[in-house]
Amino acid sequence: MINIIIKYIIIAIVVLFGSRYISGIKIDGFQTAVLVVLAMGFANTFLKPILKLISFPITILSLGLFLLVINVIVVYIVDYFIEGFTVTGFIPPLIFSFVLSISSTVLGWFFDKD
């Protein structure tokens, strides 16, 4: 349990520093970053599979490239619900979702050992 908490705190720090270097992403503070990470985890767990199912024909026709659009939609959904988190454009939330995914994967290698 403590590994999950540490993992989310480190991802929140990565998100906070990433928002300083990605020009279209604004996060007010560390508490907002933690809320963004928790909301992104929730959205990726529950909303993203629904969006993938609904957009399956478009994803097939685009040879999987529509999944990038789904990632951006998920970031915009989190932007709508979290106050203090602002997203503009298409490329910044795409980069943001890549940074979040890569950092989560790398931290998973270290913290999810059984």
Rank of each mutant, 00 (worst) to 15 (best):
V15S: 10
V15M: 08
T105N: 08
V78G: 06
T105G: 08
I4P: 03
I4S: 13
M1D: 02
G108K: 02
P57I: 03
P93T: 14
G18N: 05
Y21M: 02
F46I: 12
A33L: 01
I58R: 07
Y80M: 14
S101D: 13
L63R: 10
G108W: 00
L51W: 09
Y76W: 12
Q31N: 06
I9Q: 05
I5G: 02
D28P: 03
F81L: 13
S55D: 01
G24T: 09
D112S: 01
L47R: 15
S104Y: 11
R20Q: 01
P57N: 00
L107T: 04
R20Y: 06
L53F: 04
S19F: 06
I60V: 08
I82H: 06
T45L: 15
S104H: 03
S55R: 10
T88W: 11
F42L: 13
S103P: 00
G24K: 12
D28N: 08
I5Y: 11
L65A: 07
F56E: 07
A33N: 08
L61R: 12
Y8S: 03
I5V: 05
S55T: 12
V106C: 00
Y80K: 10
S19W: 04
E83K: 14
I22N: 05
G89H: 15
F66D: 03
I102N: 04
V74P: 09
S19K: 04
I11G: 00
T88H: 11
V37Q: 07
I95D: 14
K52P: 10
Y80P: 11
Y80H: 14
I5Q: 02
V72S: 13
A43F: 05
A43Q: 04
V69D: 01
D112I: 00
P57D: 00
I82R: 11
L107M: 08
A12R: 04
F42I: 12
V14E: 02
D112A: 00
I102C: 08
V14W: 00
V87P: 10
S55P: 03
V37S: 02
P93W: 15
K48C: 09
F111K: 05
N71I: 15
I27Q: 02
N44T: 07
F30I: 04
S23R: 06
L68S: 07
F42D: 09
E83W: 07
L67R: 05
I102G: 07
F110I: 11
I2M: 02
V36I: 02
F56N: 09
I5S: 07
K48I: 12
I6H: 01
G84I: 09
D114P: 04
P92W: 08
G41Y: 06
L61I: 01
K26F: 07
K26Q: 12
I95Q: 10
L65K: 01
I10F: 04
L51P: 11
V75F: 10
V87Y: 14
M1V: 03
V72T: 10
